[in-house]
């Protein structure tokens, strides 16, 4: 069982605001989902290597040269709030 405190902790890690109703509902749903997922723990996979990418890629590199990218104006044009050439945010707490 996931406690309400754990749900609040994870929501905080994810920077996700949740109402008290949502906390309760999501807690119950996470319990049910995790119950159904438990079965993967019955497999003994101690010696099995993990797969992070199905094509088994590693260290894909490109030439590190300058190239045209977004202009500052383009990058900023959808900013919810800007101050001159910067993204503006509320007080950092």
């Amino acid at each position: 069982m996931i406690s309400e405190e754990q749900v609040r902790h994870v929501a905080n890690l994810a920077r996700l605001g949740l109402t008290d109703d949502e906390i309760e509902k999501i807690g119950g749903q996470l319990d049910a989902i995790l119950d159904s997922i438990e079965k993967i723990r019955e497999l003994d996979l101690a010696d099995v290597p993990p797969t992070a990418n199905p094509l088994d890629l590693s260290n894909v590199l490109r030439p590190d040269g300058p190239r045209p990218e977004l202009s500052q104006e383009e990058a900023l044009f959808q900013a919810p709030e800007r101050v001159e050439d910067l993204f503006a945010v509320p007080r950092i707490d």
């Binding site: 920077r15 605001g17 990058a75 959808q78 919810p80 509320p90």
Partner: peptide, 25 residues
């Protein structure tokens, strides 16, 4: 999706509360 560079932003006093409210809504 944090309300800083594009997309929805819900205003709040501090940046953490802004993240939480933006993502909640």
């Amino acid at each position: 999706f944090d309300g800083v560079r594009y997309g929805l932003r819900v205003s709040a006093d501090g940046v953490h509360e802004m993240y939480r409210k933006t993502r909640e809504e």
